[in-house]
Write a protein that binds this DNA or RNA. Structure first.
Length: 803
RNA sequence: GCGCCCGUGGCGGAAUUGGCAGACGCGCUAGACUUAGGAUCUAGUGUCAACGACGUGGGAGUUCAAGUCUCUUCGGGCGCACCA
């Protein structure tokens, strides 16, 4: 009766597949549970041990929900458009479609070998024409509603991928994907107006149950701030410069202005500016700096005064100089600021460097000539005319009222979030279904002509200047305008990888529908996703983008809820044995195939969950894997200890109920490591006794089933239980029976442990105190001293304070 | 620089509301068995000058009682990074 996991795991994987055990039901009268994990990008490297950490966790929850009577949808698919495949295609001159198919086959084999309870009948692939037809459909809807627009603008250009990047894809000034240098390049790009949804993307976070860290990151990324726009007149010129400030209260302390080097006012005033050569040189210098250099330069401020120009402070009429500096960004606010060096550290640095005046307007801090006073929660306004004496909070309110009454400015909310750069000059992505007609402008490809499929090419590399590979497909490009019938050209840009993943969870619901992205009936039943787990790295990319698309689909009536995901959790990273990030170059990569072959899928799954706290990074340990394998084998070897007795034996009844409670609760809290520890302890108890009743064994393997499904099913069958384990119900526990009749109480004297006493569990505070004081241990401790106080905590301890 | 999280044995990590620190696993030690193995079972395993004392990065504080709360400091991680 050796534990032959190869045989057992194959047997049950085949059984589940043949019988479609985990197929979601179309019975919409049942309560539903939509469990979702991020679908993988099928790279050539195969599955990483990090993928199964997320998948096993949600698989455990999906299996538990089925046992609790839910109709569960737990699907899987492939996010298969993307650069690595395309780069491989370019290098080896193989069609990306072919590479994608091979990679998917490998991923699928690996996932199946681990025994996840995916409903494979719902499998999707973002590169399927019948899938991206609907990605294109959503894009056309966005275009129709004015949320997609083309604009010439400076974009983040990855010099290595030769592709434009969204702001979200630039990390520390380098490409998020390849680490290549990112420079600014002017290009005409398709943009999506995610900014129009900024406020709703913040507000509706209140309605969902994401872990707090994710909510915070989303809020920070959207970056809402409240303040005011203020117009500064220019002396002797009929022109105004508008600034945005979150601190209108400090307006009396504005001693100069700064506009960004790209600000249009500079060109408009070029005949008034007396040092235009110097200014132009600075503009040129700023334009040549890459994003990386601009952030590197953060320490030392540079700038040039616009000589011949003076602005007028609207509240006190003072004339103040105007400067240009690249610390002011054209992409935020109005591209111009009022500088208050006394209460802003950046302005302070600039003022000190260029000898500009510093006027204190909020009192109560240190000398503003020495340091900017920015934390003004306690401050009171000084030198500020009608604001003097007010708190900062009241001063902000009063100043906004004043500005609005006098037509000098108004209250304004700003966001850091920028519109989403949606064009990629690449082959392996969804073609943007638009046509350029010289007469009609941008015309959408008619819905009935979707999908607009990729043209067949034999070379996939982008042009040196970054033009799309599609630009070479002349037969494909030249077409007729759907509107006027005249000659027209297709858009050659494709969509970014985030397009397909922004709505994939909707397609799972109805993957073969050719009339709609999914039927309304099915969408209404299954949405929203009940529990979504994935990596932290997708918080400001995928999660934000997909929430935006979902809200748009809500607005046009496709879906009925405001938010796609009710709950979002995140797993920690699995590191190499040396505590470093797993990577080929570090030589510390663990291949899931090797673990499954040597120890089996059940051991692999158990270890993935036992490795450490689910949300924290933890190093891999082969000895840890062996420990879990030993546990699985110990469960197997309980078989000869099985008795014919029914029910729980008297001495283990409490422990059985406690274990059911612990595993049930810990699973819901994603404390998988402690749930497994509880099962290990239970098995240890069975070994100590040398026997286990049928019902005790049954409870154990039901609890173990979500974590280690193959061995559990096998043991269920071998023990002669009726039916199949996957049809069994999740065990219940009796709260009363989890409580012991008597408990051991710790006796403390002045906080030090001096003894222990077993007392009845149900006992009042007073009784407990008395009982302990009257006990031998208590008496001994008190002897010869005065009792000052007795603190009794039922079920825990009694602390006697003596003198 | 700002914001958030984390510092617990030789290691991974436990510890609802402040209430026996170190569950569970690894490793280590000893024993049993034996077809001699990376097998299995049993027992032990925080530290020390050891019937006691000390112990959750360091220092202070609140409390009858602190890993848990407060302040401070050091170390590590993540996020944002000139966002006005």
């Amino acid at each position: 009766m050796d534990y032959n996991f190869h045989e057992i795991e194959k047997k049950w994987q085949d059984y589940w597949e043949e019988n479609e055990t985990y197929k979601a039901s179309d019975d919409f009268s049942k309560k539903k549970f939509y469990a979702l994990v991020e679908f993988p990008y099928p790279s050539g490297h195969g599955l990483h041990v990090g993928h199964p950490r997320s998948y096993t966790a949600i698989d455990i929850l999906a299996r538990k929900r089925r046992m609790e009577g839910y109709n569960v949808l737990f699907p899987m698919g492939w996010d298969a458009f993307g650069l690595p495949t395309e780069n491989y295609a370019i290098k080896h001159n193989i069609h990306p479609k072919k590479i994608t198919a091979e990679n998917i086959a490998n991923f699928k084999r690996q996932l199946k070998s681990i025994g996840f309870s995916f409903d494979w009948s719902k499998e999707i692939n973002t590169t399927d024409e019948n899938y991206y037809k609907w990605t294109q459909w959503i894009f056309l809807k966005l275009f129709e509603k004015g949320l997609a627009y083309k604009q010439e603008m400076p974009i983040n250009w990855c010099t290595s991928c030769k592709v434009g990047l969204a702001n979200e894809e630039v990390v520390n000034g380098v490409c998020e994907r390849c680490g290549g240098e990112v420079v600014q390049k002017r290009k005409s790009q398709w943009m999506l107006k995610i900014t129009e949804y900024a406020q709703r993307l913040i507000d509706d976070l209140d309605e969902v149950n994401y872990i707090e860290k994710i909510k915070t990151q989303q809020r920070n990324w959207i970056g809402r701030s409240e303040g005011a726009e203020v117009d500064f007149a220019l002396a002797g010129v009929d022109k105004k410069i508008r600034v945005y400030t979150t601190r209108p209260d400090t307006l009396f302390g504005a001693t100069y202005m700064v506009v960004s080097p790209e600000h249009p006012v500079i060109a408009e005033l070029s005949d008034k500016i007396t040092n235009m050569d110097e200014v132009a040189a600075y503009q040129k210098e700023a334009a040549h700096k890459s994003e990386f250099e601009r952030t590197e330069m953060a320490k030392d401020k540079t700038g040039v005064e616009l000589k011949g120009i003076k602005a007028v402070n609207p509240v006190n009429g003072t004339e103040i100089p105007v400067w240009i500096s690249d610390y002011v960004l054209m992409t935020y606010g109005t591209g111009a600021i009022m500088a208050v060096p006394a209460h802003d550290s950046r302005d302070w640095d600039f003022a000190k460097k260029f000898g500009l005046p510093i006027i204190e307007v909020v009192g109560g801090g240190k000398d503003v000539q020495e340091e900017a006073y920015t934390d003004v929660s306690e401050g009171v306004m000084v030198n500020s005319g009608f604001l003097t004496g007010l708190s900062v909070k009241d001063a902000i309110k009063k100043m906004i009222e004043y500005l609005e009454e006098n037509g000098l400015g108004k209250k304004k909310v700003n966001f850091k979030l920028r519109d989403w750069v949606f064009s990629r000059q690449r082959y392996w992505g969804e073609p943007i279904p638009l046509v350029w007609c010289d007469k009609c402008g941008w015309v959408p490809v008619p819905y009935e002509e979707l999908p607009l499929t990729l043209p067949e090419l034999d070379k996939f590399a982008p042009g040196e200047e970054g033009e799309s590979p599609l630009a070479k497909a002349t037969d494909w490009i030249n077409t007729k305008c759907p509107h006027c019938g005249g000659p027209a050209k297709r858009e050659t840009d494709t969509m970014p990888q985030w397009a397909g993943s922004s709505w994939y969870f909707l397609r799972y619901i109805d993957p073969n529908n050719d009339k709609a992205l999914a039927s309304t009936e099915k969408l209404d039943y299954w949405m929203p996703v009940d529990w979504y787990n994935g990596g932290m790295e997708h918080t400001t990319l995928h999660v934000l983008y997909s929430r935006f698309w979902y809200k748009f689909l809500y607005d046009i009536g496709v879906v009925k809820t405001k938010e796609p995901y009710m709950k979002r959790t995140s797993q920690g990273m699995i590191l190499g044995e040396n505590n470093e990030k797993m990577s080929k170059s570090r030589g510390n990569v663990v291949n899931p195939d090797d673990v499954v072959n040597e120890f089996g899928a059940d051991t692999f799954r158990t270890y993935e969950m036992f490795i450490g706290a689910f949300d924290q990074a933890t190093p891999w340990s082969e000895n840890g894997v062996r420990g879990c394998h030993k546990f699985i084998e110990r469960v197997w070897n309980l078989q000869p200890m099985l008795t014919d007795e029914d029910g729980y034996s008297k001495d283990l009844e409490g422990l059985m109920h406690k274990t059911v409670k612990k595993v049930t609760e810990d699973t819901e809290r994603m404390k998988f490591n402690t749930a497994i520890a509880a099962m290990m302890s239970l098995v240890n108890e069975f070994y100590k006794k040398g026997k286990v009743t049928k019902d005790e064994f049954k409870t154990l393997i039901v609890l173990l089933y979500p974590t280690a499904p193959h061995i559990s099913e096998e043991l269920w069958q071998r023990a002669g239980m009726t039916g199949y384990l996957h049809d069994a119900a999740w065990p219940t526990y009796d709260e009363e029976k989890t409580k012991d009749d008597s408990v051991e109480i710790v006796i403390q004297i002045n906080g030090k442990i001096r003894g222990k006493l077993v007392v009845p569990a149900e006992i009042s505070r007073d009784e407990l105190g008395k009982l302990v004081c009257d006990s031998e241990e208590g008496k001994a401790a008190i002897a010869g001293k005065t009792v000052v106080k007795v603190i009794a905590v039922p079920g825990k301890l009694v602390n006697i304070v003596v003198k």
